[in-house]
Design a protein around this nucleic acid. Structure first.
Lengths: 165, 165
DNA sequence: CACAACTCTATTGTGCACAATGTAATTGCG
DNA sequence: CGCAATTACATTGTGCACAATAGAGTTGTG
């Protein structure tokens, strides 16, 4: 008899719900950032830099905070620099490092965007407790996924089902 | 006095938690799909096609299901075709359409990958009810975000704070 | 100092996401 | 039918994500 595959039902896939929600959120930020010329991932980088007491961090620290690598960050930071919101300079102490610093224009942006989070989430009718518990569940899931990253490679089922070609 | 910006705290941003979780999930699928040559978005397309009674859909229907547009799907489908998992052919009835059909090799993949969802989620210690409620919350959030997409452009705060240049 | 190991950034290549535009086929209206 | 509007796919261009690699700078050891 023909087997069924309930595990593949799209509308029950947590992964698809995540993927779709993430894309929707990035799209939702688009119009709110439009007047500034920055994109959503660039906004995340500014969040990290604004939070720093010196408003200045090496690339690797930004990457650690956002879980992004240099192949993503280097061109992104160059675009932020071209927009005038950050400056990049080799660290005099350790010349392997590039220090990324917020410019005055980049700091102004923080005030210009101060209402963005409230604007975005305000229109959704999301209960604050619901948002907090959703956030907590997402962080927990992410940490478990990232913890499993190095170890799960052995049990690759795609390499086992040898009925194929 | 200097204002503070609690709304920008990275570790409270729902958007960042989503973005990071989504990337983690896609990365987690990588090794599980490695033996097949497909990527996670290609896997999503196969989920849609496997679910169709004819295993054959026009591009626009796949896009509607996954909320992806043709600029993303056309090259992705060509890669799936190059791998031998789908075929693409103009619909004889309506020649504007390209019908994407699962090949026998593409159907074999469903069996080869049957354990993938269980493998991925099984190692996380996620309670089934927790997964279901997380899924429900994500879908609700996504639908609210997508519903707001056409209408929120008027209240763009980045265009209002006129203290800038 | 010499030199291997390591760290950090940059580069290259592949693929996804999406906006904007182009083009061919179809549909609808007079 | 003739032709404008619509539909569906393809193409182009920009930017993000990430693996792999390269290369410059630094550190540790003798």
């Amino acid at each position: 008899m023909a087997p069924t595959y309930p595990q593949f039902e799209l509308d029950r896939q947590l992964c698809f719900a995540l993927h779709r929600a993430s894309r929707a959120v990035v799209r939702a930020y688009g119009p709110l950032l439009d007047g500034t010329g920055i994109t959503y991932p660039q906004y995340l980088v500014l969040l990290v830099l604004w939070d720093d007491p010196d408003r200045s961090l090496p690339v690797v620290d930004i990457g650690r905070r956002l879980h992004l690598d240099t192949g993503t960050l280097t061109p992104l930071l160059k675009r932020l620099e071209a927009l005038g919101y950050v400056s990049r300079a080799r660290d005099a102490v350790d010349e392997r490092r590039v220090l990324v610093s917020v410019t005055p224009e980049g700091l102004d942006l923080r005030d210009r965007l101060a209402q963005v989070p409230a604007t975005l989430y305000g229109g959704l009718g999301l209960e604050p407790e619901a948002a907090i518990s959703l956030h907590r569940d997402l962080v927990q899931l992410t940490e478990r996924l990232e913890a499993a990253e190095g170890g799960a490679r052995r049990t690759d089922p795609a390499r086992q089902g040898g009925s194929g070609s």
